[in-house]
Deep mutational scan, measured.
Amino acid sequence: MSGIALSRLAQERKAWRKDHPFGFVAVPTKNPDGTMNLMNWECAIPGKKGTPWEGGLFKLRMLFKDDYPSSPPKCKFEPPLFHPNVYPSGTVCLSILEEDKDWRPAITIKQILLGIQELLNEPNIQDPAQAEAYTIYCQNRVEYEKRVRAQAKKFAPS
């Protein structure tokens, strides 16, 4: 494992614990031996107030490669969400998460999670990743928002 990646992720964890947006979660997972795995984080993004996503808490896994922060983490909703920019596998399609697009090593975990929260309610229809959600979003916004509200209710924190 890269010392650069681990040191950056340790800084990220410290900064997150000191200050993070209300309702968001970002925690490194534990290895079988109980030690912390900084390369694999369990996160959760709350649906934004005043949107059909409100009330939901959407679980996301963030996986970092050894060359982080040169390369972005892979962000994957578990379980996958109904959304035009979420692949059926759950992987998020967002330009700041793509090395050859808008990724920059200075982007923080907090910025990534806030960017994904923004994307939930403002899909990028130029870059669809899920045919069904994309089609319904474009053709029947009322039905799309109904499905999103049902999903938010399903993923409401207990």
Rank of each mutant, 00 (worst) to 15 (best):
G23C: 00
Q11K: 11
Q111N: 14
W53L: 00
I107M: 13
L113G: 04
I125K: 04
R17Q: 03
A26Y: 01
H83R: 00
L57A: 06
N37C: 15
F77V: 02
S95Q: 03
K14D: 04
P123C: 04
C43T: 15
S70G: 14
K153D: 15
K110G: 05
I4M: 13
P88T: 15
V86E: 00
K74R: 14
V27W: 06
K65N: 15
G47M: 07
V142R: 14
P69C: 03
I112D: 05
Y144C: 00
P72F: 00
K59E: 11
T108W: 14
V92L: 14
E78F: 04
Q117G: 12
N31A: 08
A15E: 12
K153V: 04
N85A: 08
L114P: 14
L6A: 10
A152C: 03
I4C: 12
K65A: 05
A106G: 11
M36T: 00
T91C: 15
T29F: 15
K101H: 14
I96C: 03
K59I: 10
L120S: 03
I45C: 14
R149F: 09
F64A: 03
I45R: 06
P32H: 12
T91D: 06
R13P: 02
F155Q: 14
I96T: 15
N140D: 14
K48C: 06
P73W: 02
E12W: 05
L114K: 11
P73N: 02
F22G: 07
H83V: 03
Y68V: 04
H20Q: 00
G56H: 07
Y68K: 00
W53K: 01
K14S: 04
E42R: 10
R61I: 09
V86L: 04
V25F: 11
L94T: 03
K18T: 07
N121E: 12
S71G: 15
R13E: 03
V86G: 01
V148H: 01
Q139G: 07
A15R: 11
K110A: 04
L57I: 10
E12Q: 09
I136E: 12
P52H: 14
G55L: 10
N85T: 00
P128G: 13
R17I: 01
E99I: 03
R17C: 00
M62I: 10
G47N: 03
E99S: 11
P84C: 09
L120V: 06
K154A: 12
K14A: 02
P32T: 13
M39Y: 09
S89L: 09
I107S: 13
S7G: 08
T91R: 09
E78C: 07
A156K: 05
A156M: 09
K101P: 08
R13N: 01
K76L: 14
K146S: 15
